[in-house]
Amino acid sequence: MSTLKYGVSLYSYTGDMYTLMTLDDAMRQIADLGATGIEILGEGNIPSYPTPSAAWIDRWHALLEEHALEATNYGSWIDSSMWRHRDLTADEGADMLAADLRLASTLGFTTLRPKIGVVSMDLRPHPIWEEVIERNLSLAADLDIVICPEIHAPTPIRHPVVEEYVSFIERTGTDHFRLLIDTGIFQRAITTANHDGLSEEAQEEGWRKPLALPMSDLESVLPYTAFIQAKFFDIDAQLVDQQIPWREILETLIASDWSGYLSSEYEGDRSPYRAVEQVRRQHALLHRLEGEIRGS
């Protein structure tokens, strides 16, 4: 039977985390939703990354226990373009991923999203990706962490990037490499959310041109999917989301007997504390819809 669990990415609280909220505040908000999982960005949320102090690690575990939360997905970067004069080598990328896998394990995470530099507008990963991942499969198995690259707009599911990932899974036979699906790929209407730094073209189209992928595409990759980032932009006071078709997504997950985490990733307006209310609305909506679909 499908078991859906709900968590929150600390990315949802970007802005507030730097000025208004501590890690303890964020965990308290997440637990108060009835959520059970927390997702972080390694470089963005860990002080003194990549070598946090023993005191901070102890505090992290104490807060997880205090708020009855589990560490879910760890966001990692393998920056293939970090040097002006050359690309990252596979050796360097493999070392970066290994270091993040070990840190993620120390903090109790069970999945890790490697964000590898891209070489095209449709987000094709740098060619080193396959060697970098393959050289870390044994370590991932030893640590019992699943490496799961993100399928994110503007990359659709039916695309060579996804085909290459699935082929890699089938070729290696590994249980420690899967997909992470970002629900922004199912977006059906533009949003007027204001994000500083967007290009004029992006502003004119709204915050990302909707791909509006069908649920049949989601169904086709669920056997290869380990984690879902529940991307959203705005949910109104009546718990209506004009952009993301949550009922159809949950119906597909439940009908396909998929189990795992949906982790809130709010990307709407960044005014203070708006994210807190928006994530709360999303969780209320998801719980209501799941209850209706299951008839409970």
Rank of each mutant, 00 (worst) to 15 (best):
V119D: 01
M121G: 15
E66R: 09
P223S: 07
I116R: 05
I46C: 02
V161S: 09
S167W: 11
A68Q: 10
L179T: 06
P149Y: 08
Q242T: 10
A55P: 08
A35Q: 05
S271R: 13
D100L: 02
P160Q: 06
D24H: 08
P214L: 04
G184P: 05
E170V: 09
Y49A: 08
I293G: 05
Q243P: 04
R113N: 01
Y224K: 07
A54Y: 15
E66I: 02
I190V: 14
L20H: 15
S48C: 15
A94T: 07
E251F: 03
L88Y: 06
L41N: 15
L198D: 13
H152V: 06
A140R: 00
Y18S: 15
E219T: 09
V132Y: 04
E164H: 11
A237K: 11
T191R: 06
S76T: 03
A255P: 03
A202L: 13
S216E: 09
D144M: 04
L198E: 14
E43S: 10
H176R: 10
E164Q: 14
R247T: 04
R171Y: 07
D25E: 06
P210W: 10
S199A: 07
Q229M: 12
V279Y: 04
G184H: 00
W129I: 00
R28F: 08
S2K: 07
G206Y: 11
F233T: 07
S296P: 12
P114W: 06
L218K: 03
P223Q: 05
E251D: 05
M121C: 13
L180S: 03
L250N: 01
G295L: 05
G75H: 01
Y18E: 15
I151P: 05
R124E: 14
E248C: 02
D32C: 13
A71D: 02
P47H: 06
E292H: 07
G44W: 14
S138L: 10
I185V: 08
I40W: 00
F168L: 12
G291K: 12
R288F: 10
I249W: 03
S48R: 15
Y273W: 13
I133S: 10
R113M: 00
E65S: 13
P223C: 08
G260H: 01
R59E: 14
E70D: 12
N194H: 14
Q187A: 11
I244C: 00
Y13C: 00
L213A: 07
M21A: 07
W83E: 12
P223I: 06
P52K: 04
N45Y: 07
P149G: 05
S216C: 00
T192Q: 14
D58A: 13
L289I: 13
A275Q: 03
Y266H: 03
T111I: 03
W207F: 15
I147Y: 00
E150N: 09
D95T: 11
I40C: 02
E205D: 15
W207T: 13
A31L: 07
S271E: 14
H195I: 13
Q229D: 14
V240I: 08
R28C: 12
T19Y: 10
I57W: 05
L97T: 04
A255G: 00
I145Y: 07
E92I: 01
Q203R: 15
I169D: 07
Y273E: 13
G268C: 04
G206K: 09
